[in-house]
Amino acid sequence: MTAPERAPWPRLTGSEPCMAPGADPEHWTGSPAQRLKGQEECLVNCPESTRRQCLAWALDHPTHAGPGIWAGTTYTDRRRLRELRAAATK
């Protein structure tokens, strides 16, 4: 049995809040309070198609995604989503 294909790196348009000029990387990787700001920015300002791609990538690459904010989700959110996805495929 072959391993399922993993999501590719998201196609970024440059309009994402994490790519904006002057974007503070701490909003996605800093303290929990800082990540909350990034989470809000992402959910309000990031294009939906990009969020879907980022979420797919972060779910398929948990080690590389780490504790940062991806597609407006936290590490805990993504762990729960992976558990749900695994249960749904059983």
Results as ranks from 00 to 15, higher is better:
24 D>V: 06
35 R>D: 02
38 G>W: 00
54 C>K: 02
75 Y>N: 11
52 R>G: 02
40 E>Y: 04
69 I>M: 11
3 A>G: 09
52 R>L: 12
8 P>C: 07
51 R>Q: 07
89 T>F: 00
63 T>I: 06
27 H>Y: 04
42 C>G: 04
51 R>P: 03
85 R>W: 05
73 T>F: 01
4 P>M: 12
6 R>N: 03
52 R>K: 13
52 R>T: 04
27 H>W: 13
88 A>G: 14
47 P>Q: 09
88 A>S: 15
73 T>G: 03
37 K>A: 10
89 T>K: 11
75 Y>I: 00
28 W>F: 12
79 R>H: 09
57 W>F: 15
11 R>L: 15
72 G>R: 05
69 I>Q: 01
74 T>E: 01
33 A>W: 09
81 L>N: 00
31 S>R: 15
11 R>Q: 15
50 T>I: 07
35 R>Q: 10
85 R>P: 01
23 A>Y: 05
26 E>W: 11
64 H>F: 02
58 A>M: 01
79 R>C: 13
53 Q>N: 00
74 T>F: 10
13 T>Y: 09
30 G>D: 13
82 R>T: 05
33 A>N: 09
30 G>H: 10
79 R>A: 13
36 L>H: 08
23 A>P: 03
3 A>I: 11
31 S>Q: 12
2 T>L: 13
14 G>S: 12
44 V>C: 13
61 H>S: 00
72 G>F: 06
51 R>H: 03
84 L>M: 05
33 A>V: 10
88 A>L: 03
7 A>E: 04
53 Q>E: 10
44 V>P: 01
4 P>D: 08
69 I>D: 07
1 M>S: 12
34 Q>K: 06
85 R>D: 13
51 R>K: 08
48 E>Y: 07
21 P>E: 15
67 P>S: 11
82 R>M: 06
55 L>D: 01
13 T>G: 14
75 Y>Q: 07
44 V>H: 11
14 G>F: 07
72 G>W: 01
43 L>V: 10
77 D>M: 01
71 A>N: 01
63 T>W: 02
37 K>Y: 10
69 I>W: 01
23 A>N: 02
88 A>T: 08
76 T>Y: 09
17 P>M: 11
45 N>W: 14
57 W>C: 11
6 R>M: 05
81 L>T: 03
26 E>S: 14
67 P>V: 00
86 A>D: 13
68 G>K: 00
2 T>N: 07
68 G>S: 07
90 K>E: 14
90 K>S: 14
30 G>W: 09
19 M>P: 02
41 E>H: 12
46 C>F: 02
42 C>E: 01
67 P>C: 00
22 G>D: 12
50 T>E: 04
75 Y>H: 12
26 E>D: 11
